[in-house]
């Protein structure tokens, strides 16, 4: 079932300051760009590296968020987005505002790489890393612009390659060192398992409960009065910082051959209508991860099933010492 990729190296592009990235990640979520945007960035980057003759293939990408500032109003039951005034229409009147959410993020990107050349040629690895860093600096990430740091010479901004070609122990060791360099921050991992778990719990009380009910239930805090302890209790204890996220697209019908759909972006590529698909994710501090595979997202594509999604192989581990998030 899993398309989990194999890779030989991790390329870390640390602490990219991305301004005005998309904060609206799907028709039902906001607050961080969709993981599909990072997968798309990875593909776009490989097109550039291939064109430049580099021997690197990207297999997946991980994202650690160090800082974020969403451009929304503070306070109030719901947030509204700070908007930008669009240029006036042709008669000078104010153009209709299409609400776009924006967020500033400082992220580290961790690219899962396979490269034969990097295993043989340390110089090539170093040159390629510099080239990739240059490419990224001129690209848009989730619609946002990468802004150079004030002090680009600081070690924390230097790209880094982690060699994972050694034996199991070497790989774990290399990753253990890396993860400590990714804090402070949080990385997004998949928690598909939670929906089934919550669905089972809901179905025990109401046989008609659906997976959608489970997803909605996980997207909010549910309080019950505990008659034994005489107080209200929420259902987030021990759950970690779990959030609803878009994970990709599901097709709405068949593939149209290239050129069949009027006004498609290009006349050659097969075209398909789709909708966002959702699941649950968790923001977790990288120091809690044991191996690289746990933070890497990769594409899983099944055109015949109409499925275009991003996957991540994190599986929850029991950590009795993790600080709990409490609500009131």
């Amino acid at each position: 079932m899993s398309d989990a990729p194999n890779f030989t190296h991790l390329l870390v592009l640390p602490r990219l300051n991305v301004q005005n990235a998309n904060a609206i990640s799907s028709p039902l979520t906001h607050g961080f760009p969709s993981i599909t945007a990072f997968i798309g960035l990875m593909w776009a980057l490989e097109r550039k590296t291939r064109a430049a003759g580099l021997d690197v293939a990207f297999q997946g990408i991980g994202v650690v968020c160090h800082r974020h500032q969403e451009q929304t109003t503070e306070g109030g039951y719901t947030k509204a987005f700070h908007l930008t005034r669009n240029p006036a229409a042709k008669d000078g009147s104010t153009a209709a505002i299409v609400e776009e959410g924006r967020i500033h993020i400082e992220v580290s990107l961790i690219l899962a790489v396979t490269s034969d050349r990097w295993q043989r040629d340390a110089k090539a690895q170093q040159d390629d890393t510099e080239t990739i860093q240059q490419f990224i600096a001129a690209m848009r990430i989730a619609g946002g612009s990468v802004m150079p740091p004030d002090s680009p010479w600081l070690p924390r901004y230097q790209p880094q390659v982690v060699d994972l070609t050694g034996n199991e122990a070497d790989r774990l060791d290399a990753f253990r060192k890396l993860r400590l360099r990714l804090v402070p921050g949080f990385t997004l991992v998949s928690r598909d398992d939670l929906i089934t778990q919550r669905h089972d719990a809901l179905a025990a009380e109401d046989a008609n409960a659906t997976r959608l009910d489970a997803w909605l239930s996980l997207s909010r805090i549910n309080w019950r009065y505990n008659d034994d302890e005489h107080k209200w209790q929420h259902d987030r204890r021990g759950l970690g910082w779990v959030v609803p996220i878009p994970v990709g697209y599901g097709a709405l019908g068949d593939v149209h051959p290239g050129g069949d759909v009027v006004n498609a972006r290009d006349p050659d590529t097969p075209f398909r209508f789709a909708e966002s698909l959702y699941s649950m994710g968790q923001w977790i501090s990288p120091h809690r991860l044991e191996q690289a595979e746990q933070l890497i997202w990769y594409a899983q594509t099944r055109p015949d099933d109409g499925l275009y999604r991003c996957c991540n192989d994190y599986r929850p581990i029991d950590d009795p010492f993790e600080a709990l998030y409490d609500f009131d």
Partner: peptide
């Protein structure tokens, strides 16, 4: 400012009308 219709938002006017 360079805008397709030469519009100036603050003045509510467009100086390059179709």
């Amino acid at each position: 400012a360079v805008e397709p219709y030469g519009s100036v938002t603050t003045q509510g006017a467009a100086y390059r009308q179709p």
